[in-house]
Simulated assay, not measured.
Amino acid sequence: MWWTHIHGMGDPAHLAQVVRAALDATAIPPAAAAPAQQPAIDLDTAGIDNALGRRGSADGGIYRFTIARNDAAQDSGHVVPPGTGVNTALNFQPVGGGRAAINGDFVVTAPEVQNVIQALRRGEITWSNCTTNSLTDEPRLFYMHFWAVDNAVALAKALRTAVDATNAKPAQ
């Protein structure tokens, strides 16, 4: 099992206790403390940033981008903050020689799906699946997962075309 999506409304402390009880019923270990110093990212991060037109951040040896949509998502009439996962996520894991294994997901609307697929295919990036996480979201959002291993900057250029095919917030 890779992902389990949950939904809850109410007292934050009570919701946290319920989620904690659910996690305790699994084999998921508790979160580890963040290392005092981030491991070096053996990639041309400036080239990746330039290709994507925004700055990534190091996180445990992964170089990642979190890109919010320009439209506000709602679910059951409630605004869904970008921090709850309605962002495009791009992850670069160094594998040596300037190459990266990339994965993540694009958060797209139905009219954006084919344009993102075409952009990924042109960049020789495999999209593995397209899912929904809610039955009542507005706009209706789909999550397109992808994967590739190649030159990190070349992959970033291909991902930029796919990002530009979505209603992503402009880089700041």
Rank of each mutant, 00 (worst) to 15 (best):
Q38A: 10
A100V: 03
R64K: 12
L90D: 08
D75I: 08
S76W: 11
P111Y: 02
A25Y: 11
M144V: 14
F92I: 00
N103Y: 10
D137W: 04
I67T: 03
G96A: 04
S128V: 15
Q93W: 07
R122W: 04
G98V: 05
F146A: 08
G83K: 12
T136M: 08
S134C: 11
T109D: 09
V95A: 06
I102P: 04
G98M: 09
N103M: 05
T26M: 05
T84S: 11
V113W: 03
E138W: 14
A21S: 14
D49L: 00
N133V: 13
T88L: 00
E124C: 05
D24C: 07
A100E: 05
F146R: 06
P81Y: 04
S128D: 15
F146K: 06
A36G: 12
P29K: 05
A32I: 11
A89K: 10
P82Q: 02
Y63R: 02
R99Q: 15
G61K: 08
L52V: 07
P82Y: 06
G53V: 09
N115I: 00
N129M: 14
G96E: 03
H78F: 12
V80G: 06
F106L: 02
I67C: 00
E112W: 02
I62D: 09
A73P: 06
N133P: 11
T26H: 05
A110H: 14
Y63D: 03
G53C: 08
T109C: 07
D75E: 14
G47S: 10
A27G: 13
I125G: 06
S57A: 10
I125Q: 08
S76A: 07
L23Y: 03
I48G: 02
R69A: 04
G104L: 04
V95L: 07
I41M: 03
A72H: 06
G53N: 09
I67G: 01
N133C: 12
V107M: 02
D49R: 00
P30C: 04
L120A: 03
P82M: 03
M144I: 14
I28T: 11
T88G: 05
I62H: 09
P30A: 08
G53P: 07
R55L: 08
D42E: 15
Q118E: 15
I117V: 12
G56L: 02
A34W: 13
P94G: 01
I67D: 00
V79K: 10
A34M: 13
Y63Q: 02
T136F: 07
N129R: 15
A22M: 14
A101N: 10
G56V: 01
T88M: 01
A119W: 02
L141P: 01
I41T: 02
L90E: 07
D75M: 10
